[in-house]
Amino acid sequence: MNIVVLVKQVPDSGSERKLDPADNTVDRAAADNVINEMDEYAIEEALTLKEAQGGEVTVLTVGPESATDAIRKALSMGADKAVHVIDDAIHGSCAVQTSAVLAAALGQMEYDLVMCGAEATDAQLSVMPALLAERLGLPQLSGARKVTIEGGTAKVERQTDGGFWALEAPLPAIISTWDTINEPRYPSFKGIMAAKKKPVETKTLADLGVDAGSVGLASATSKVLDFAGRPPKGEGVKVTDEGDGAQKFVDYLAGQKIV
């Protein structure tokens, strides 16, 4: 079974992230750029499926030069090869446009399954599987906490409020995975060394047959007008419990007319 895993490089969600006032897009220099943590679950799940059923795992990324680091991370975990779409014209693209580029790249690949993370931690959209499913006419099995592939059918438990929905669809399909699905492996030293030799094919928009004018900031379907830091909160009150902490807490709630 051949699986394509979509991997995005994002600014580290644990650091202070910023938009770039020059064009209101993500400031990639402001924070460390790392593989979207949520994509590691998709990679892990793809590798587990490959180990059980054979086939190849290919990583697909749309992103700038620096995104190679995210690709290497995926390869060092055990993915076999990668496709990296790099083109300056893509800068500032909205999700609708990015999905067009990913769909075009997928159109040149052979797969039984496309897997991706449940969300990219930068914009937190959780929409890529839906966008791609719509464009490619693939079944969308999103938000998986469990995946089973049996005889050409994908069965997924979609995580919901207080439970799950059991979903079923024929392959090829697109599946996104939640962080409840598995425990992603750490790359081994051997894996890290091997990753350096694995093939990474780069493609431009021209290679994909995508018109450069249809992507990028200028033709994005939505735009950021302005942004500002959240106004800082006023100093709060802090008390140390000396046997009266509960009392002071309840008094505070009473003062706020909550109790």
């Binding site: 994005a220 379907t221 939505s222 302005d226 942004f227 959240r230």
Partner: peptide, 17 residues
């Protein structure tokens, strides 16, 4: 919209359709 863990407040507009 509240971006980046709510730390940034963004104003945005749909420009197509």
């Amino acid at each position: 919209q509240a971006a980046f863990a709510g730390a940034t407040i963004v104003h945005s507009q749909v420009t197509v359709g």
